[in-house]
């Protein structure tokens, strides 16, 4: 009996040792599937772009990428989940500006920028300020400024949810233009489009790919581009001023990044970084982005540059929330 037990114990020990030796053989990372934590529900734009990126990334890490949707509490649940995983590089975290926004409100148990390092900025997007066709009060940014200065607060502008990215962007822009408008929060981009086409509101900001069909049909008129440069390659936006023409900068732009825990071993991080930048330069992925106009504002290509963008936005949000009294 004792003998059998001993043999069993020996076998158990052997079984435990074998994998250790397996690791010691210095097999190249990664040896199993990677998880991509998506802090959004299934089916939204951020979910789809993360899955799309993951599809191409598989080619370069030579392992499957498993998307894990953790959409609770406006990205906080997804962040906490990614944070709780071991720092072995097998957990990637997708993020958008919402995660930075939540950090400025100290919504999660730890600060994102202090616990995660950027790997890649997969794609960038920019927003355009538009008005409806036949608006008699203003048709250009200059006319808008003149009208809004004469009638403070009379112009209604729509955005998605209160106290979030749109709200912050618009308050920064209004301050820069020296005008006052009234922010009306809606829940979704489709509601906003219906509201401006129905002339309930006079101004709307939306992403270029989403609003382009209405610009092409002439139902909406672009006024101002919420980015640092003009975008003349899209015919409908030719000659439309951008915010830096009015001396405004530092507004949160739309981007989607992939990050990994800061304490991940350096060699693993390097492998991941290389795979991510290969994916970023993959011709098929580039074609996908071009179709959706997600490449025009691609600027931050190194981890340092991405960190800089994060820090700048963190500052913008912190200031915005201090002004609105959300944080002290």
């Amino acid at each position: 009996m004792k003998k059998t037990l001993r043999i069993l114990a020996l076998m158990l020990i052997c079984m435990m040792i074998v994998p250790v030796f397996g690791c010691a053989k210095k097999q190249e990372f990664p040896t199993r599937a990677l998880e991509m934590v998506i802090p959004f529900g299934v089916g939204g734009a951020s979910d789809i772009s993360a899955r799309e990126f993951g599809k191409y990334l598989e080619k370069y890490v030579k392992q499957p990428i498993k998307p894990v949707n953790k959409g609770g509490s406006g990205t906080v649940e997804g962040f906490e989940y990614a944070l709780a995983q071991p720092a072995d590089g097998y957990t990637l975290f997708e993020l958008t500006t919402s995660v930075i926004m939540k950090e400025s409100q100290s919504a999660a148990s730890k600060k994102f920028t202090e616990t995660f390092d950027p790997l890649v900025m997969m794609m960038t997007d920019f927003q355009i300020l538009c008005t409806y066709k036949g608006n008699e009060k203003f048709k250009t940014a200059d006319e808008l400024v003149t009208y809004a200065k004469a009638n403070p607060g009379a112009v209604k502008i729509a955005g998605i949810s209160a106290g979030a990215a749109d709200d912050c962007t618009q308050s920064t822009v209004a301050k820069g233009l020296g005008i006052k408008w009234t922010y009306v929060p809606y829940t979704s981009g489709s509601e906003i489009k219906a509201a401006i086409l129905g002339k309930e509101i006079a101004l709307v900001q939306d992403k270029v790919a989403s609003i382009l069909p209405l610009l092409q049909s002439g139902d909406l008129i672009p006024i101002l581009i919420f980015a640092d440069n003009r975008v003349d390659i899209i015919p409908q936006l030719k000659g439309i001023p951008c915010i830096s023409d009015y001396g405004i900068s530092g507004i949160p732009i739309s981007w989607r990044c992939i990050a990994v825990r800061k304490d991940t071993p350096k060699e693993v991080k390097d492998i991941l970084f290389k795979a991510c930048s290969d994916t970023f330069n993959d011709p098929d992925f580039k074609a996908y982005k071009e179709k959706e106009f997600l490449n025009i504002m691609d600027v931050a290509k190194t981890p340092e540059a991405i960190s800089k963008v994060w820090q700048a936005e963190l500052k913008a949000y912190t200031q915005f929330y201090k002004e609105t009294g959300v944080i002290k």
């Binding site: 609770g72 509490s73 406006g74 906080v76 649940e77 906490e80 919504a107 999660a108 949810s161 209160a162 106290g163 979030a164 709200d167 929060p185 829940t187 609105t324 959300v326």
Partner: peptide
Amino acid sequence: IDPISGVQRFTFNKTFLVG
């Protein structure tokens, strides 16, 4: 989150109730 003003209501400081 209050849809118009953005403040939290009845969330009792629980993150899972924020959404």
